[in-house]
Simulated assay, not measured.
Amino acid sequence: MRTTTLRVIAVTSALAIAAATPVASLAQSMDELAAAAEAEGTLSTIALPHSWCGYGDVIAGFKAKYPNITVNELNPDAGSADELEAVRANKDNTGPQAPDVLDVGFAFGPQAKEEGLTQPHKVATWDTIPDDAKDADGHWYGDYYGVLSFVVNTDLVENVPQDWEDLLKPEYANSVALAGDPRASNQAILAVMAAGLARGGEAGQGSGEAGLEFFKELNEAGNFVPVIGKAGTIAQGATPIVIAWDYNGLAWRDTLAGNPPLEVVVPASGVVAGVYVQAISAYAPQPNAAKLWMEYLYSDEGQLGWLKGYCHPIRFNDLAQSGKIPQELLDALPPAEAYEAAVFPTLDQQGGNKDAVTGGWDSVVGANVQ
């Protein structure tokens, strides 16, 4: 049986937690913030599929706690780049198409801040968020992480691949897909990085270039399917193998309930962990509802909601050390050993990789993923 201690050690070493910085006091008390948010009456989210990280239950929990706030869910299948574009496109729009909050890949947080697309807010639990997973000014902060894995329909795939090079085998013809467009989706961009690292590429531009060569070979071999993979495409047989975050694969497995059976495999090499971050739009039509949403997400209740969705919440260590994580939630995750070799790319490494992948996918791989 896995223990809390094992996972605390794994996460601590991976994130290299530094001493916490003093938390900025909330400008409003929670009661005042809740009243102001309820007066606004709406929260507009974007890119939050209900199967992603347990968001369906997390949103339901927020609604139950604040029944006077309607949650307007925009474009659940959007990628991180799409989220930033939604803020840009709606900065002069206070209507329902303007998102209040963002959940984007790590590299997209600083980009959004630099463009002036975010506003600062430090949640009450600010001190328990690792320093290297948050902006010092409160413009963005890590929320959860997972590792990239192979999600396999075992009704269609007899020999389940265990590492990246396996995917090039002829038996996987017309079988392998990404869970997003690598020109816009953080999940897909980091999948290319993982393949590149497995090939010996150095994290950053090198991993991006090596990963592009891998996917070029995969495409030329006839194994790559240019379809965005998800539970439905796996079940239909259109994408028998999907490269996706472990938490997405585990959620899809639960959703499909054995029809078909899925196996989620953390590859033997090129294990990349991806931290996602939260932010509030600088142009949020409902800024108080946005702040209240953040307070909920970073409360114990919100963090455990993500863990129920198979994501490691950013406050995992704090919750574990205070004995707040039920053992059954730990037991539902892959073994702690699967995460021991995980690489947590720095912002600079992610930025170099992202530039290589988004700039070179069309010319090197030439597959229009949609």
Rank of each mutant, 00 (worst) to 15 (best):
M294N: 13
R253S: 15
I46M: 05
I69A: 13
A89L: 03
G208V: 01
F316E: 14
D137N: 08
A257Q: 15
L74H: 07
Q303I: 09
L307M: 14
A98G: 02
N288E: 14
E73G: 11
H312P: 02
A107R: 03
F106W: 11
N75W: 14
V225G: 00
G229E: 06
F150H: 11
G249D: 10
W126I: 13
I228L: 05
G222L: 04
G109L: 02
Q303S: 15
G79L: 03
S322W: 10
P260E: 06
T12K: 00
L197Q: 15
N259E: 08
N174D: 02
G61R: 06
N68D: 15
N353E: 09
V277H: 01
G366E: 01
N186C: 10
A320Y: 13
P334A: 12
G196H: 09
P240W: 05
N174Q: 01
L74M: 11
L74F: 10
G180A: 13
L117P: 00
L256D: 05
V11F: 15
A279M: 07
L148R: 07
I129N: 01
H50A: 14
T255W: 07
I9P: 01
L218Y: 12
Q349C: 03
Q350I: 07
I314M: 14
K230W: 07
A37C: 09
E217V: 06
G206P: 06
L297G: 04
P170I: 08
I9F: 11
V23P: 01
S269I: 07
V225N: 00
G360W: 01
Q111N: 05
A332S: 15
A107S: 09
A195N: 05
A198V: 05
D127G: 11
P285V: 10
T154C: 06
G142N: 05
E220P: 08
G61E: 07
D318Q: 11
L43A: 08
G54R: 13
E158I: 10
P345A: 04
E328F: 13
N259C: 07
V104K: 04
V271K: 13
V343M: 05
D348M: 06
A78C: 01
L319R: 03
A336Y: 07
T239D: 08
T4A: 15
G351D: 01
D254N: 14
V11D: 13
E171P: 09
F344C: 04
A198W: 08
P267V: 10
Y310H: 15
P260V: 09
D300T: 15
L319C: 07
D82Q: 10
P67Q: 11
A35H: 12
N353Y: 00
T125P: 00
D77T: 14
K91D: 00
E73Y: 04
P285D: 08
A64V: 00
I129R: 04
N248C: 11
L330R: 03
Q303P: 04
W293D: 08
W126E: 03
A210N: 12
F62L: 10
C53E: 03
Y144V: 12
G200Y: 11
E83Q: 05
L197K: 15
Q303A: 15
S269F: 09
E213R: 13
Y310E: 07
Y247G: 11
Q119G: 02
A60D: 14
A133D: 11
P335M: 09
T255V: 14
A279W: 06
A10L: 12
D100N: 04
Y172D: 09
Q236F: 05
A367D: 01
G196Y: 06
Y66E: 13
K63M: 10
D143P: 02
A210I: 01
L329S: 11
E263F: 08
Q370T: 12
V357C: 07
V104A: 02
